[in-house]
């Protein structure tokens, strides 16, 4: 799941300042799950912005709110077409993908980001999210006992822990587990420590030239042999 957090109010108020009618657009998928931009957050933000406007008494904004099931596919945005005609800007509480898809779908209207898209991860418990995947494009979890050193080691190194690990935690953040200690313990438990003793050559960053694209559909012509 993609995890994000809502931008600070000051920044949101700054980016919407030039626009009178602003549509607060939520996303019903990842942003709902991570509590950054689901229907409730949209409504909360709407309320908070209205309070700000009422208290500063210099407001000109007219807010509306709407949440689509997913912002990252054009088809989900069709239901927005009418509403978009009636606003001057959209503040999207979708992830960075959502913001761009909305912008691409509605080329004539400014689309502003309301959240900072942070990472791909999981909920550790209610209200706590942890990063788990860096989308490196070259998954090596088979060698590291299902624990990703690229994401979870602050240095993303491949051949074992640095000397900064202490009490099983990372030198960069004492609350963060040292990924390599976790990997070592799990490999030991799986009796696969030989995987750690192996030398791993430097990463191949060529697998992530940006922007990336994955093509699943085969390059076939319809109507010939294949029907």
């Amino acid at each position: 799941m993609i995890v994000a957090e809502q931008k600070p109010m000051e920044e949101i108020r700054r980016v919407i300042a030039p626009y009178e009618r602003v549509l607060l657009l939520g996303c019903g998928t990842c942003m709902t799950v991570c509590g950054a931009g689901g229907e409730r957050e949209v409504s909360f933000l709407n309320s908070a912005l209205r309070v700000a406007q009422a208290k500063s008494s210099d407001g000109i904004h007219n807010f509306s709110e709407y949440t689509v099931k997913r912002q990252c596919d054009f088809e989900f945005l069709d239901s927005l077409a009418d509403k978009v005609n009636e606003v001057d800007a959209i503040l999207s509480l979708g992830c960075g993908i959502g913001v761009q898809v909305v912008a691409e779908r509605f080329p004539d209207i400014p689309v502003l980001p309301g959240v900072n898209t942070s990472f791909m991860g999981m909920a550790k418990e209610w209200g706590v999210w942890d990063e788990r995947c860096a989308a490196c494009g070259d998954c090596r979890l088979a060698e590291t006992a299902g624990i990703c050193p690229i994401t979870r080691c602050t240095k993303g190194i491949l051949n074992g822990p640095c000397a900064g690990t202490k009490n099983g935690k990372c030198e960069a953040n004492k609350d963060m587990d040292c990924a390599w200690i976790l990997i070592y313990k799990r490999l030991e438990r799986l009796q696969q420590l030989d995987k750690m003793r192996r030398y791993y050559p430097p990463r191949n960053f060529r697998v992530i030239p940006r922007p990336r694209r994955i093509v699943m559909k085969a390059d076939v012509e319809p109507g010939e042999d294949n029907g």
Partner: peptide, 13 residues
């Protein structure tokens, strides 16, 4: 190191 084994693995490497 308070957990020496992984350090030794790296030392050998």
């Amino acid at each position: 190191a308070d957990f020496i084994e992984p350090q030794l693995v790296k030392f050998e490497k």
